[in-house]
Design a protein around this nucleic acid. Structure first.
Lengths: 145, 145
DNA sequence: TTTATTTCCTATTATTCTAGTAGGATTATT
DNA sequence: AATAATCCTACTAGAATAATAGGAAATAAA
């Protein structure tokens, strides 16, 4: 039960765009270098974020991407669901996919509890939280030196 | 991020063995029929449970399987980890697989929270809980009719 | 002792998913 | 005109999933 690179990289992209946001455009090449991810693969992932309106793009030379809204408005859950699809641990819990045995399936109740716990975490952490953590870390680092 | 059939079927096997435990041997064929799973595939899954000592086997005619210990002693987490491997949402969280960037990885903290939440659920539900739910359901059903 | 029944063991396979790679079209700046 | 960037689509190697298949070994019943 793993989160794929697609979802993980998408979170890293949003984090990178939020952390390095100065109003200027940020190039895929730079994100790829900073996050140590294949440039061409990142292109495909950021295309998903772009189509969903999570980022804005500027084409041509000196173009790039900017985060569309405030980092507070993006939860990890939103980004994972967009790129990975449903975060339900079993297909039975997804919309429109009810099996006939669901009414008498004790294990399904466990999966539902698991699903709730997963959502509880990913829907309560935002990109802003990650940025704050990084800045806190950097701050204390400066303080130490 | 899905639990595979391997893990789900293993839980179903343990549940079935606990629910139908009379001291007699239970055949794979019967479990497969009750749980609506391929018999040959179940054989492979129950072999894992057998090797781990979660079930006891009796070979030959009139043979079969019995749950080894009390249903209270088997958590869903134990069964899933045995059949699926680690339930960590990312490889970085698995033992002996630390990447170099872990110290300065904000997203890793989210995955750790997620991992904790997952473990919290699967380690606190036992096979006995599932059996109790089924018996409760059957009881109330009898009461209704 | 033979037959039937059951677990045990290993190999094979079709399908899907993952994680990219590749190549070029389009758009905008310099 | 040259360069730099996004955009778009196709392709692919490898791994994982979810079985299927065939028979060997063990045991009980006839």
């Amino acid at each position: 039960m793993k989160i794929s690179t697609k979802g993980r990289y998408a979170v890293k992209v949003m984090f990178d765009l939020a952390l390095n946001n100065t109003g200027e455009c940020i190039k895929v090449k730079d994100i790829a270098a900073r996050q140590n991810i294949s440039e061409k693969y990142l292109e495909q992932i950021i295309a998903i974020l772009n189509k969903a309106g999570y980022v804005n793009s500027v084409r041509g030379a000196q173009g790039g991407y900017r985060i569309a809204r405030a980092p507070e408005e993006y939860t990890i859950g939103m980004i994972l669901r967009l790129t990975e699809g449903s975060m339900a641990p079993v297909a039975c819990l997804e919309e429109g996919a009810e099996c006939e045995q669901c009414d008498t399936c004790e294990t399904l109740e466990v999966w539902r509890d698991l699903y709730d716990a997963i959502n509880q975490v990913i829907d309560h952490v935002t990109i802003a939280d990650l940025v704050a953590k990084r800045q806190q870390r950097e701050g204390s680092l400066d303080y130490c030196i």
